[in-house]
């Protein structure tokens, strides 16, 4: 069982990373709005992702500038 002396400290490091990650998420405001993202994901804005449309959009943008 000597391997535990190594594995448990590794677990501890991962724990520290998890807490740091969570605190970072809270600080950057990811927990401010818990309802919005659930809806946002359903709005698939994939039109501009389709290569044809993306090219068209880029052209339009160039014209505007």
């Amino acid at each position: 069982m000597n391997i535990l002396y190594l594995l448990i400290p590794i677990g501890l490091i991962i724990l520290g990373a998890a807490i740091w990650l969570f605190i970072w998420a809270v600080r950057s405001g990811q927990y401010e709005d818990l309802e919005g993202p659930a809806h946002r994901i359903l709005m698939d804005d994939d039109d501009p992702m389709i290569p044809e449309n993306a090219a068209k959009k880029a052209r339009e943008k160039k014209q505007q500038e």
Binding site: G11, L12, L15, A18, I19, F22, I23, V26, R27, Y31, E32
Partner: peptide, 21 residues
């Protein structure tokens, strides 16, 4: 309110993850 919420969240994370371990 915002700082209170964020403080509570962080407390929850530390105690929750700590408790599991």
């Amino acid at each position: 309110h915002k700082s209170e919420r964020s403080r509570a969240m962080r407390g929850l994370a530390v105690s929750g993850l700590g408790a599991m371990q």
